[in-house]
Simulated scan of single mutants.
Amino acid sequence: MCNCRADIEKRLTDHYRPKLAGSRDVEAKLMGYALTLGKGLGIQPYMPAEIRHTVTVKKTGADKRKTEKVNFYFSHCPFCGEKLQKDK
């Protein structure tokens, strides 16, 4: 797997450390990564998404707007495009 996540987190930390002069232990973390269970444990990038749709309520016949939240998992690194390896 590529090192994009670690590289970008380091660059973000280096960028924000001087801006937060009164702070200690500055650390940037990319939040779109999940611990996944397959044939083993692994870290996989994802992006939250919302699916919005309108349904008709059977009882009243009125339209109701609904929102479903899903996670969109990447098969390739969203930064460099390298194909992610499957857990072995």
Rank of each mutant, 00 (worst) to 15 (best):
I8V: 07
E68L: 12
K69Q: 15
S23F: 13
A6T: 13
E50H: 06
Y73L: 05
T60N: 01
F79Y: 15
K58A: 11
I8N: 04
T60V: 01
R5C: 05
K83N: 11
L20Q: 05
K29H: 03
T67N: 08
Y46G: 06
K88G: 14
L84K: 10
A6D: 13
V55G: 06
K39W: 03
C77Q: 03
T13G: 09
N3P: 07
T56V: 14
E9Q: 10
V55T: 12
V57I: 15
A49W: 08
F72A: 07
P78M: 13
C4E: 04
A28I: 03
C2G: 04
G38Q: 10
A62Q: 09
P18T: 06
C80P: 07
A49T: 12
L37T: 13
A6W: 09
A28C: 07
E27I: 00
T67E: 03
M47C: 04
V70R: 11
Q44W: 05
E27A: 04
E27R: 11
R24P: 00
R17I: 00
M1W: 06
K69H: 15
R65K: 13
T60G: 01
K39T: 09
Q85V: 11
R17L: 01
R11M: 08
T56G: 01
A49M: 14
E68M: 10
K88V: 11
E82T: 12
R11H: 08
T67C: 10
V57C: 04
T60H: 01
K64N: 05
T54I: 12
P78W: 12
Y46H: 13
C80E: 06
G40D: 08
T13L: 09
N3Q: 15
H76D: 08
K66V: 00
Y46V: 10
L20R: 03
R52N: 13
I43R: 15
D14T: 04
S23I: 01
Q44N: 07
K58F: 07
Y33Q: 04
V70H: 04
E68H: 08
E82V: 06
E82R: 09
